[in-house]
C-alpha cells in the first residue's frame, strides 16, 4: 500500500516537473523566435553573402574565400583594425576608472549625492547621434565654445581645427565617449557596491581596513561580476564604434580615424561591395566572440579562487 502510494506521488512529481519544463519551454519561445529571426537568420545570411561578389545593385556571383583573402591584404582594413584596437585600449580603462571614481563618490543616499548622480547621468539619456553632433559643434574652431574658451584664457588663436589634427581628433572622440558613457557604468558599479552587505564592510573596518585597502581587498573583489559585465560591454561597444567617428571625424584626418565598422559601412554602401562588407563583418564578429570569450574565462576563472 505504502509503496504504491509513494509511486503515485513520484508520478505526480515527475508530471509536475514535466509540466514546469514544458511551461518554461513555452516561455522561451518568443525570445527564441526573436533570436532566430533577428540574429541567427541575418547572421547566416551575412555569412552566405560573404562568399559572393555581391554588389549593391547588379549581378552576384559565388567567389568562395576571395573576399577573405582580399581582407587580409587590404591596408585600409588592417589600418582600421589597428585604429579600433588602439581606441579600445585607451577608452576602456579610462571609462572604467572614471565610472568607478564617480560610483564611489555618489554611492551614498544623501540629497547631494542624489543630485550629482542625476547630473552625471544626464549625458547617458541623450542619443548617440545628437551627442556626437553636439561635440562636433563644441570643438569647432570658429563657433565652438571649447576653442573660444581657450582663446580667452590666452592659449593662442585656436584657428586650427582640432578635428584636423590626428591625436587631437581621437582625443575629442574619447572625451566625448567618456562624458557620454561613464555614468552608465557608474550606475551599474554603484548598484553593486550598494549591494555589499554592511556587516562585511564593518567587519573589515574593525580589522583595520580603510580607504584604498578596503576598496582593493573588499569592495572590488565583491563586485567582480559587475566589473566583468562592465568591461565586456565596454570592450564590445568600443570594438563596434561607428556613430561617433562617422559624425565627429568622418574618418579623417587622412582616414586615420576610420574604425572597422565605419570601414564596413563604406565598403558596403559607398564602394558598393556588399559581399566584401559582409566578409569583414564576419571577421569582426568572430574576433569579438573570441575576445568576449577570453574575457569571460579570465574573469570567471578568478571567481573560483
Amino acid at each position: 500500500m505504502a509503496s504504491a502510494n509513494i509511486s503515485v506521488t513520484r508520478n505526480r512529481k515527475t508530471s509536475f516537473a514535466k509540466k514546469r519544463a514544458r511551461a518554461g519551454f513555452y516561455f522561451v519561445i518568443p525570445a527564441s523566435i526573436f533570436v532566430l529571426v533577428f540574429f541567427l537568420y541575418p547572421f547566416l545570411n551575412v555569412i552566405w553573402m560573404s562568399f559572393q561578389d555581391w554588389p549593391l545593385l547588379g549581378e552576384r556571383s559565388w567567389i568562395g574565400f576571395e573576399n577573405y583573402r582580399t581582407a587580409f591584404q587590404d591596408i585600409e582594413f588592417i589600418n582600421s583594425v589597428k585604429f579600433t584596437l588602439l581606441y579600445t585600449v585607451i577608452v576602456t580603462p579610462l571609462l572604467f576608472f572614471t565610472a568607478l571614481g564617480m560610483a564611489l563618490l555618489i554611492k551614498g543616499t544623501s540629497r547631494t549625492t542624489k543630485f550629482f548622480r542625476t547630473i552625471f547621468f544626464l549625458p547617458v539619456v541623450i542619443g548617440f547621434g545628437p551627442a556626437s553632433y553636439l561635440w562636433y559643434w563644441f570643438v569647432d574652431s570658429r563657433v565652438g565654445p571649447a576653442p573660444q574658451f581657450l582663446r580667452i584664457l590666452g592659449f593662442g588663436d585656436q584657428e586650427e581645427q582640432w578635428l584636423g589634427i590626428m591625436p587631437l581628433a581621437l582625443f575629442v572622440v574619447i572625451v566625448m565617449v567618456v562624458w557620454k558613457f561613464a555614468a552608465f557604468q557608474m550606475i551599474l558599479l554603484m548598484a553593486a557596491i550598494q549591494g555589499i552587505s554592511k556587516e562585511i564592510l564593518e567587519a573589515a573596518e574593525i580589522d583595520g581596513a580603510k580607504g584604498f585597502t578596503l576598496l582593493r581587498t573588499i569592495t572590488l573583489p565583491l563586485i567582480k561580476r559587475t566589473i566583468s559585465l562592465v568591461l565586456i560591454l565596454s570592450v564590445a561597444g568600443s570594438l563596434l564604434a561607428f556613430d561617433q567617428f562617422y559624425i565627429i571625424t568622418g574618418g579623417n584626418p587622412n582616414g586615420s580615424t576610420l574604425t572597422t565598422v565605419f570601414n564596413i559601412y563604406r565598403q558596403s554602401f559607398l564602394q558598393f561591395q556588399l559581399g566584401y562588407g559582409a566578409a569583414l563583418s564576419v571577421l569582426v564578429a568572430i574576433a569579438l566572440m573570441l575576445i568576449s570569450l577570453i574575457q569571460l574565462r579570465v574573469l570567471r576563472g578568478d571567481d573560483h579562487e
Partner: peptide, 24 residues
C-alpha cells in the same frame, strides 16, 4: 558608373588626393 566610390565617399581617391595634395 562609379561616381560614389571614386568621388563621393569621404575616403575616395578624389578626397584623399585633395587632402594630401592641398593640405600636406
Amino acid at each position: 558608373v562609379a561616381y560614389t566610390p571614386l568621388i563621393a565617399d569621404g575616403q575616395s581617391p578624389w578626397v584623399k588626393m585633395l587632402q594630401s595634395a592641398i593640405f600636406d
